[in-house]
Every structure is written in C-alpha cells, then in structure tokens.
C-alpha cells in the first residue's frame, strides 16, 4: 500500500515537507530575508514603499508604558485590529468592532475594559504569541471590511486568499473560508475550508474541509465551487510583485479583499504550508519545475502573468 501511495504521489508531483525544505526553501529563501516577512511591521513598511496596498497602520506599541497611553489613539477609530508583529497562524489577533461606555466591544459581542485591553497588549509585548516567546511589538491597524462578494461564503471572520509565488510567478492559489468550527480563523487545520482556485482564471474548484471534498459551505450552504474571484488579475499582479518586495523565491502571499480599498497584502510567509495541494487536487512539483526552467526568460511582470495563462490554466 505504501509503495503504491508513493508512486501515485510522485506521479501527481506532490511536494512533501522534506523536498519543500531542501529544494525550495533552503535554496531560494535566503535566511537573512526572513525578518522582513516574520515581522509584519517590516513587511508593511516594505509594501508601502513598493506601493502595494496594505491595511493602514494606526499605531505600534513596542514599550510597556505605551500601552497605557494607547486609548487616546484607539478612541479615534471605531473599529480596528490589534495583532502581534511576530504572530503566526492568526494567533493573537484581537478584533475590536466598536466602543461602549465600559470599554471596547469585541467580535463575539463581549465588552473589554481599558485595563483588560492594556493587559492584552502587554501580553503581546511579552511574547506570548511570537515564535520562540521572544519579546514582540503590537500593531494596531485598519480592520478590513468584508467585501459583499464573500459575505455568504464565510461564517464570521475574514476569508483570505493564499497564493504561492515561486520566483515571481504565482503558481498555485486557494481561498480560505472560516467556518463555525474554525472560530472565525482562516486556518485549515483549525477547521477552515480550503478552496482551490484555477490560477489562470480565478475560478474556484472544489473545497477541502478537513479530509472531505465539499462543494458548498458547511455553515451557510452556499455553493463554493465554480465562482469567479473578482479582480483576479489585480490579485495576481499584487502577488507577483511580492517577489521583488521580499526577495524570497518561494513564498506564500496572503491577500484579503476590502469592500472599498480592494485587494490588500495581509502577510507574507517564508514557509507556506503544503495543504494548498490538497485544495487544488494537484501537486506543486510540475509547476515548480516549469518555472525553474523558464524564469530567466521572464523579465517583467507582464511576462510572468502571461506565463501563468500559458502553462497553468486548468482548462
């Protein structure tokens, strides 16, 4: 059974963790560039410089006593997000939806007093959510408004789109839809749905929820297959430009779509997961090899986008 599985996976070109780490991450992602993607503040700065759309930054809290003075800034914005600069998998993200007399209103309709919020920020600073428990910074930023297009596709939370970009060429993408089970988080192993997207056209294929193939959202019952992501070309352009931004050859680009401001870069990932292969029901390897063969001929952004149309179309 095992040799048969291995043969089948090799035929599909599925990349395992070992191959990803050896042939792609360690080869194309220089270690010294990791801080730019691990620190969301740095990523944001770089993106702003490059003219890439990101959620607006309201404040950065780096020292404990700043947490006490933060309320004046926070009062100016009716809704915002507080998150650790070094968080991973969406951990430590706190969404404030409004103000009340007693304090801040959170996503699940609880009231958070000023003191509790300060403590939360201090916790972020002490490194509870950062990898390795290192001291961290807390970012306060614009809360992305859900585009009406996604309204029925998600249960709470914010769906995002993950695009794997290899040497500047987007090669595989999926949409991640939070569910009731994932608690509003867009994390696949916490119960979010992964929906494969035809990278050439932006049309969704099937969804994967845990190990099941699904075509409709388990909470809302809405069809999730065969829908077209709006402004797909803009998303591809944005993702492709992230190569110049971070310098990482193999990266995962997480994009959210705002109701008014359109596609925004949320974060970059230097070690993107491999579940995207399951959502797309295809392996990464053939596409990685094609890009490796041709990337020297692709001098500009247009070349790279047309390369996708030429080689990676599902139809």
């Amino acid at each position: 059974m095992i040799p048969k599985l291995i043969r089948q996976f090799n035929k599909l070109g599925i990349v395992g963790i070992n191959r990803r780490n050896l042939d792609y991450i360690s080869k194309y992602n220089p270690r010294h560039l990791y801080p730019f993607v691990d620190d969301k503040l740095l990523t944001k700065m770089l993106a702003i410089q490059a003219g890439i759309n990101v959620p607006e930054l309201y404040a950065v809290i780096a020292i404990n006593h700043q947490a006490h003075d933060i309320h004046a800034i926070l009062k100016k914005h009716s809704t915002f997000v507080i998150k650790p600069a070094h968080g991973s998998c969406g951990n430590g993200v706190l969404v404030i939806t409004g103000h009340s007399k007693k304090g801040y209103r959170t996503l699940n309709r609880m009231i958070m007093s000023d003191e509790v919020l300060e403590n939360y920020i201090l916790e972020i600073l002490s490194g509870v959510f950062s990898i390795g428990g290192h001291p961290d910074k807390a970012l306060v930023e614009y809360r992305v408004q859900l585009d009406p297009f996604f309204k029925d596709l998600t249960y709470q939370g914010m769906p995002d789109i993950r695009i794997i970009v290899f040497l500047g060429v987007p090669i595989l993408s999926m949409m991640r839809l939070p569910t009731h089970l994932s608690n509003g988080k867009a994390n696949l192993h916490q119960g979010a749905i992964g929906v494969g997207i035809d990278i050439a056209t932006g049309k969704t294929t099937n969804g994967v929820w845990f190990n099941d193939i699904i075509t409709e959202h388990p909470d809302t019952g809405i069809e999730i297959s065969g829908i077209c992501i709006p402004n797909w070309q803009d998303l591809l352009n944005l993702a492709a430009r992230c190569y110049e931004l971070s310098g990482l050859g193999y990266q995962g680009v997480d994009i959210v779509i705002d109701r008014e401001k359109g596609p925004m870069l949320l974060e970059l990932n230097a070690r993107p997961g491999l579940n995207i292969q399951i959502a797309n029901r295809t392996g990464l390897l053939p596409r990685l090899k094609l890009v490796e063969q041709h990337y020297k001929e692709l001098s500009c952004l247009e070349d790279r986008i047309s390369f996708i149309q030429k080689y990676f179309s599902n139809t």
Partner: peptide, 20 residues
C-alpha cells in the same frame, strides 16, 4: 539530511489525493 522523499505520516495526510 538530503532525504527528499515523503514522510510516512505525510502519506496519510495526502491520502485524499490518491483519489484524483
């Protein structure tokens, strides 16, 4: 350290792909 093959447990993780 140069082993590029699948990990045993990965085979179960990608098991769904067997049906493609």
């Amino acid at each position: 350290g140069r082993y590029k093959g699948y990990r045993l447990f990965e085979l179960f993780r990608f098991k769904e792909m067997n049906k493609v």
